[in-house]
Simulated assay, not measured.
Amino acid sequence: MLVRPWLRFRLALSFFTRLPVGALGESGDEDFGRSFVYLPLVGLLLGLLLSGASLIISVLFPPIILPPLLLALHLYLTGGIHLDGFMDTFDGIFSARKPERVLEIMRDSRVGAHSVLAVTVLLMTKAAAIYALWEWGHLPDQWQVSGLNQIFDWRPTWKVISGLYGQGVSPLWITLLWMPMAGRWVVVYMVSGFPYARSQGMASLFNRYIDRSVLAAGTLFVAAVAGLVAGLAGWVFLALLWLFFRWWGGKLTRFLGGLTGDIYGAGCEIGEVLLLLTAVLLLRFL
């Protein structure tokens, strides 16, 4: 009975990450399309890997090296699939052309000046926010190599308003844990909330088999994890992401007639950087 869900989860991992999934066996378009429901779970798994990697990197290297190494690991784990969509999207929407031409530019594999500028700003902002979160939390003494045995005496606390933020847990670890999940929830929302702009394309399979139940399940899952790690602030973060992408998705839909796979990828990247910046803002008030 669990064969299909397990297959679809591994299909989601194989498409959205570079993580090994083993032999997939036989699967059809419906399995691939319905694998989309596991996208937030894939994001949480990526978050666990990034959060764990940040601890190891922080112990081995100076903090200034932490942001580029984390971003490089994130890029490797995802294969750059969402970043590629981000670049194609900004090449298209910044071209100031008619909708038909914008869609053609987004499909073009060549890289333009607009995409280079946009991805440079995106990665610089992500790196700066990662460093700010690390600097805000400073690794406590018990996490240093000379005192790792003290880790078992460490007891975090939790508050309704901010969850684990400001309670002795590194804000970088917390944010890295749920940042990829929230970014991929944005993709689920955009797929289920707006029409698809093309008649064909790999992302069209997601639109064909997705329904409101997928969005509801993904939202409940993400809200539960966000509440656990960030308390009420986590739900506020999600509400702000929803408001922004409701506006942005609607604006692009009115212009292009719908969204595309590239725009879904751009939504994931923008969602991640917005969450990083919002976490930095939260720490200013704790």
Rank of each mutant, 00 (worst) to 15 (best):
L45V: 14
V116S: 06
C268M: 11
W143T: 14
T260G: 01
Y209L: 02
A12R: 01
F15S: 04
V145P: 06
H82D: 03
Q167K: 11
L39F: 14
M190Y: 03
A216L: 15
F86E: 02
M179W: 06
P68M: 10
A132H: 10
R101C: 02
K159W: 06
R212I: 07
I210E: 10
L75C: 12
G52W: 07
M181G: 02
G25M: 02
V236Q: 05
I174Q: 02
L240Q: 11
L75M: 13
A96F: 15
C268R: 02
V229D: 03
L133F: 07
S14C: 08
I93L: 12
L275T: 00
L60C: 11
P20A: 09
V42M: 04
V188D: 05
L44C: 02
R8W: 08
D211A: 06
V225Q: 01
Y38A: 13
I263M: 14
D31S: 09
G25E: 11
G271C: 10
T17S: 11
S192D: 13
L148M: 14
L256T: 00
G201F: 05
Y38M: 08
F206R: 08
L44W: 08
V273H: 00
S170C: 13
G47I: 06
L243P: 03
L45T: 08
T253S: 13
